[in-house]
Each structure stands twice: as C-alpha cells, then as structure tokens.
Amino acid sequence: MAEIIVVTSGKGGVGKTTSSAAIGTGLALKGFKTVLIDFDVGLRNLDLIMGCERRVVYDFVNVINKEATLNQALIRDKRTENLYILPASQTRDKDALSIEGVEAVLNELGESFDYIVCDSPAGIEKGAHLALYFADTAIVVTNPEVSSVRDSDRILGVLQSKSRKAEQGETVKEHLLLTRYNPSRVDAGEMLSVEDVKEILAIPLLGVIPESEAVLKASNQGVPVIMDSDSDAGQAYDDAIARFMGEDREHRFLNVERKGFLSRVFGRKG
C-alpha cells in the first residue's frame, strides 16, 4: 500500500506546487514508483511545473466520473523513470471532487505505487480538505512570514482533527518545509528565522529551501527545481528528500554565505 503524502500550507503562493514537483521527482529519483496528483481543480498548475502540459488528455475529474481510466489519465514523466502525474481539470471546480471518488482513485493508485504525493490547493475548504483527508504524512510548506505561519498552524489543526487518520484516532505525520528563506533578510530582522517558525509550529523540520532565482527559472522551463543540482534550491530539496528517507543531513543555506563553494566544502577557519 502506498504512502500518501499531502503537500499543504493553508496560504497560497508559498511554494506548494514547486515543492510537490520537487518532492515527487526526488522520490522517483530514489527509485520509488511515485505519482503526483494535482488537487487544485480549476487552477491547474502542476502540469506546467512538470512540463507536461501539452500531454494532458484526461484528468483527475474524468477519472472520478469514470469518463476515463487511470491509465488513460496518468502522464508518464519523460525525464524521470517511475514518475507519473495525474493532472487536475482546468474547466471544473472543487465541487467536482467527491470523497468517495478521491478514495477510489487513491485506492487504485495505492496498488501499484510506493508514494502518492497530493498537491493541495490553498485554503481550508473542500479542495484542501479532500487533498489532506486520506494523508498518512503531511509536508507543511511555510514561508518565513507571520501570516503564512499562522495559516500553516491552522492547517495543522485541520490535519489533526478532520483527516481520516484523526477520525480513526491516529495522527498524521507532520513535516515542516520552510521555503523562500532569505538569511540576509532574517539577519536584518525583516523575516522570521527558522527558529522562530519551529518554535511557533512545533513540528519537525524537513528542510529549508532558500529563496532562489533557480526556482522561477525552473518553473518557467517546466523542469522541477530538484533536477537543477547546481542550484542552492535544488540541493536543499535533495537534502529534504534524503531526510524524508531517514538520512541525517545537516541543514544548509541558513546563514548568509559570503565565501565560495570550496570554502564550504573544505571548512572555514576561525
């Protein structure tokens, strides 16, 4: 049975889809058969980030309505083996999703996949609720900014009270992914620090993704940023996946970096 991961945040525009794409790709690169599901019905974006928008024929809602089979709707990623995308419908809205329909699709996917990564829409309404309802694990994407942190707190509350696990008296595993982190703005007191956010949300930190030009570039090119292994954001996502698999890696990109790559590799004096 596949592990169901929801990538969620409450607030919009914090990097859920970018993170979903990176996490799904990262898991597939590790050799796990992974499917990415876009739950943002009506505002389909994941296909763009994954660069498969031209190959969308059928979508999630078609499968739920039994207008297409899963195999017809699943898009096989061209770059990464083991990776599939189930796109959202652009012409419908969240009401097209039903809890039974979502469950049936997840059950069918669960038979052949190792990981199901659900890219949640923003908000706490139906779409977001359905995306997190069946989750075993949640990756909560947060920006170092008070409103984003509060919304993440809210979604954590929803996770532990309105998910299937919660209803069965179990808990959903929680991970914090802090994105758009800018150490120099933290030093200037303009941005919350990692410690501030950890202190407020009180959940384990999976990774800190630095604010990076590579992310925008990757989005526009339709290549998940984790594939850009030269970029800081790509490396940070790679670290996060390694931690997710249980590896112990030190957090990087937390401090203002003035020295070059070599000095980081060979250590700093003083």
Binding site: R154, L156, G157, V158
Partner: peptide, 8 residues
C-alpha cells in the same frame, strides 16, 4: 496533550 492550533 496535542497542540491547540489556530482556529481550534
């Protein structure tokens, strides 16, 4: 015993 989150 669990955190009381925003909105709860």
């Amino acid at each position: 015993t669990t955190p009381v989150r925003s909105g709860q």
